[in-house]
């Protein structure tokens, strides 16, 4: 089970003077159940790539296959769009209903589910940490963090296998960000693959199994967080800054202090401390 992208090219404004290839010849694999982060500078093509994963955009060249369904087969598009849920960067662009309840039951109704919609709405709302008092409220009168959570809940309502999120932490403060990441971690642990598009390398390194770095519409690098840090320390990708702790880790290893990689401050402090004690013995 995976989202498999082969030689994908996407061209905006084709045949006009503004023609630009947002993605050129991109190949990659998102394994089911994994947490993959797509990182890159503004304009690197990461949002375009995200929109290809649930066939919101269709390839100019190449192929996108979700599990065993191809976007080139028109009859499979519907199922692909259920399997891959997309959460936009600005929840305002996604939310539209008068109440949270209508928002949450819209998806399931479209897939022909009519039974127990109220129970389902309550269940997905609970999954994102909001209680039933939210059901009758207007999604537009919630805080930024709550709007994002309702947008995620509305996607979870159709039980996707892959959850694709475009910059889910933009504009949130430290506690809002922490809460959202914990929530995504829980969703990921229950078996749903998470694909996170972000320019925040720190979060990507901390949370992901795999990182894909895009640069000018091409895959510059893909690998584990540790490999990504090693790659980027010798091949800087424009617009992506190596987080301070990752930078420290690289420099320590250059001076002969080899410790396990982590982007979490306290894990890193513990690793350093253990190494120091080990050497002294």
């Amino acid at each position: 089970m995976s989202i498999s992208i082969k030689n994908l090219t996407h061209i905006y404004h084709r045949g006009t003077p503004l023609e630009v290839a947002a993605l050129s010849d991109v190949s990659l694999e998102i394994p089911g159940g994994s947490w993959t982060s797509i990182v890159g500078h503004t304009g690197s093509g990461k949002s375009t790539l995200a929109q290809h994963m649930n066939a919101l955009l269709l390839p100019d060249m190449g192929e996108v296959v979700v599990d065993d369904l191809s976007v080139s087969s028109k009859k499979d598009l519907r199922e692909i769009r259920r399997k891959v849920g997309l959460v936009f960067q600005y929840p305002e662009q996604q939310l539209f209903a008068e109440t949270v309840k209508d928002e949450l039951s819209f998806g399931p109704k479209n897939w022909g589910m009519t039974d127990n919609l109220d129970d389902l709405s309550e269940k997905v709302l609970d999954q994102v940490g909001l209680d039933r008092t939210y059901l009758d409220r207007s999604p537009f009168k919630l805080s930024g963090g709550e709007k994002r959570r309702v947008a995620i809940a509305s996607v979870l309502a159709v039980s996707p296998s892959y959850l694709v999120l475009d910059e889910p932490t933009a504009g949130l403060d430290a506690s809002g960000r922490g809460y959202l990441l914990k929530l995504l971690n829980k969703i990921n642990n229950s078996g749903t693959a998470v694909v996170m598009v972000t320019h925040d390398l720190e979060i990507a390194l901390d949370m992901s199994d795999r990182i894909i770095a895009l640069q000018l519409g091409k895959v510059a690098h893909s690998g584990s967080p540790r490999d990504t840090v090693l790659y980027m320390s010798s091949n800087p990708v424009p617009g992506l800054l190596l987080p301070s702790i990752a930078d420290l880790w690289v420099k320590l290893s250059k001076y002969g202090m080899e410790i396990p990689f982590s982007c979490d401050p306290s894990t890193m402090a513990k690793n350093i401390d253990e190494k120091r004690r080990g050497t002294k013995k």
Partner: peptide
Amino acid sequence: WGLELPPMVAMWRELAKMGT
């Protein structure tokens, strides 16, 4: 206070606490 230390400062504080 709803604030988060920069990661480098957070790590530094722990290292100092442990006496490393």
